[in-house]
């Protein structure tokens, strides 16, 4: 069922303190008509999953520039599944080496957006993914 408003959680897991990119994306999504719950820095996977649950979001966007994605993302995916949120669209942004991308996709990450990705691309991707019924 297509919802009126797409709700997106944007979080920065781990110790990475560079939030400019996350804020740019958050603003772009807001300007595209979405409701963005911005939880900011130093989020643990537990905090992210719980917030995603309470806010009943359609999308979780993780911004990771610290290189810790291979440790953080699996944990987030695990917790989301545990809490019964298999239909959530998880996106990862930041510094993600090409070599790691297939592994992340296998974990269930639907989109990976590196620095310099035009925000329109992210907006369109979300619009497409959220309307489509889950095709796992």
């Amino acid at each position: 069922m297509a919802k009126d408003k797409i709700r997106v959680l944007i979080a920065k897991p781990g110790l990475d303190g560079h939030d400019r990119g996350a804020k740019v994306v958050a603003r772009a999504l807001r300007d595209a008509g979405m409701e963005v719950i911005y939880t900011g820095l130093w989020q643990t996977p537990e905090m992210i999953a719980e917030a995603a649950l309470q806010e009943d979001v359609d999308v979780v966007g993780l911004s990771i520039l610290s290189g810790a994605h291979m440790a953080l993302v699996p944990r987030v995916m695990e917790l989301l599944a545990e809490k019964g949120m298999d239909d959530i669209v998880v996106l990862v942004g930041g510094i993600i080496p090409d070599d790691d991308r297939p592994a992340l996709k296998k974990m269930g990450v639907r989109g990976i957006f590196g620095p310099g990705t035009p925000t329109e691309e992210i907006v369109e991707f979300i619009r497409k993914e959220v309307k489509r019924p889950d095709v796992q």
Binding site: D31, I37, A51
Partner: peptide, 9 residues
């Protein structure tokens, strides 16, 4: 835009 930045959390 009809969107919102929900930043209280």
């Amino acid at each position: 835009s009809g969107g919102a930045f929900l930043g209280d959390r």
